Amino acid sequence: MTSATEIQATDGAAPIKEPMLIGESMTGGYGSGADILHGCTIAVDPGEIAVIVGPNGAGKSTAMKAVFGMLNLREGSVRLKGADITALSPPDRVAKGMAFVPQTCNIFTSMSVEENLEMGAFLRRDDTRRTMEQVYELFPILREKRRQAAGELSGGQRQQVAVGRALMTEPTVLMLDEPTAGVSPIVMDELFDRIIEVARTGISILMVEQNARQALEIADKGYVLVQGRNAFTGTGQELLADDEVRRSFLGG
């Protein structure tokens, strides 16, 4: 596992270990509405899989969107590789190395699989063929169906297109909102296997997941949110072994 990013202190002291990405003490909500997040902190280290779980309405997806700049924070900050990006727009965060895959409406259904992947590389000015080949190696079914309209694919295959398109940006952080929603257990296991493979390349994964037990099994770090607050934080295995977490959030 790669260590956290080291930020050199200006006074010559030892480097400060900083997560690859951190949303720290985040408080905020949508527009002028009530706050949904209350001092929530989410972080992920390089090459790590961090999973956000919790009951419905806990603020999981809101925390993810806050980290990606899709809502304004009243308090708190977001840092990427030690740099404060709180004021940056989502497109500017993409340019800095973040990629976000929403739960729904995450592909262009009328475009082919390959056209969807090409759209993912719209910010790049270099040769993207190597990255596309890597996506096809990760998701072999997409190579087979590369000329097919993405809207004709199964739910699991659409998710592969969405993740592949995000990977075309060559991100340092890949953010996934409920990547296994609505897919079969077999497809869920396959998607999780691919997510593990992505993390092994050094990309940080931050993921919201409703299938909490299965997600924590692959997680280096887990966050349990309740009403927009951090309720439990630990490694995936620590949370799986915690009696209260199991009883309250994992069905015993």
Rank of each mutant, 00 (worst) to 15 (best):
S3N: 14
A4W: 14
E6M: 13
A13M: 04
I16R: 13
E18F: 14
I22Q: 13
G23R: 07
E24S: 13
G29Y: 13
Y30C: 00
Y30L: 00
A34T: 11
I36R: 03
L37H: 08
H38A: 01
C40W: 10
V44H: 06
E48M: 10
V51G: 01
G57V: 04
G59N: 08
K60L: 11
S61I: 04
T62N: 01
V67R: 04
F68Q: 04
G69R: 07
M70C: 13
L71H: 07
G76M: 10
R79C: 06
R79K: 15
T86R: 04
A87T: 12
D92A: 15
G97P: 03
F100P: 00
Q103C: 01
N106T: 00
T109Q: 11
S110K: 12
V113L: 09
E118H: 11
T128P: 02
R129S: 15
R130T: 12
Y136V: 03
F139L: 06
P140E: 02
R143M: 08
Q148R: 14
A149E: 14
A150V: 07
E152N: 15
G155C: 10
Q159F: 05
V161C: 12
V163C: 01
R165Y: 07
T172L: 06
V173R: 10
L174R: 01
P179M: 08
G182H: 05
G182S: 05
D189I: 02
D189A: 15
E190V: 02
E190I: 04
R194M: 09
I195A: 02
E197Y: 04
R213M: 05
R213A: 09
L216F: 09
L216R: 08
E217S: 10
I218H: 04
A219V: 04
V224I: 13
G228E: 08
T233H: 11
A241S: 14
D243G: 01
R246S: 10
R246C: 09
G251A: 07
